[in-house]
């Protein structure tokens, strides 16, 4: 599991997608790879692995950053936005809103890279849509 992440980080750091996106992959922990995509270097993606899946998590904002009166409106907007976002979905993990992607560990490196660049782009799209509701 860890070896695969290691391999992924080595390849990602060297590669560039058809769209010209490059990646910076750094281990923040033995099992967490933090990937910054050149198309959005403000919001990095945390990549973890299980035996079957590669999980990509972009922390969007903490629930504390949502004004109390706006929580329901924001949640409902996010639920409606999520199906329209390609390849990623929106979730709540602990106290944090996240953009989330999951793929099989058998996914080709090109597709993993594509998922990551799309997730990085989605982050900007989603945040732009909901940012008027944040503090």
């Amino acid at each position: 599991m860890q070896n695969n992440l290691q391999e992924l980080s080595l390849i990602l750091n060297e590669m560039s997608t058809d769209e010209g996106t490059t990646f910076e992959a750094v281990f923040v922990d033995d099992e967490i790879l933090e990937v910054t995509c050149s198309n959005n270097d403000e919001f990095s993606i945390h990549v973890v692995m299980t035996k079957k899946q590669i999980l990509t998590v972009t922390p969007l904002f903490s629930a504390d950053e949502v004004p109390t009166g706006k929580v329901n409106e924001l949640n409902s907007l996010l639920l409606r936005v999520s199906p329209a976002v390609p390849l990623s979905s929106v979730g709540l993990q602990d106290n944090n809103y996240i953009l989330f992607g999951a793929m099989s560990v058998n996914t080709t490196i090109e597709n993993i890279a594509h998922e990551l660049e799309v997730q990085a782009e989605n982050t900007i799209d989603v945040l732009e849509t909901i940012s008027p509701l944040l503090k």
């Binding site: 923040v28 922990d29 099992e31 967490i32 933090e34 945390h46 973890v48 692995m49 299980t50 035996k51 079957k52 899946q53 999980l55 998590v57 922390p59 904002f61 903490s62 993990q93 602990d94 106290n95 944090n96 996240i98 999951a102």
Partner: peptide, 21 residues
């Protein structure tokens, strides 16, 4: 088990995310 492992791995990111925030 995969569900549990998924949740477990995701939780590992939480600490790092919280630090970021």
């Amino acid at each position: 088990l995969e569900k549990i492992k998924t949740v477990e791995q995701l939780q590992k990111t939480t600490a790092s995310i919280n630090k970021n925030f």
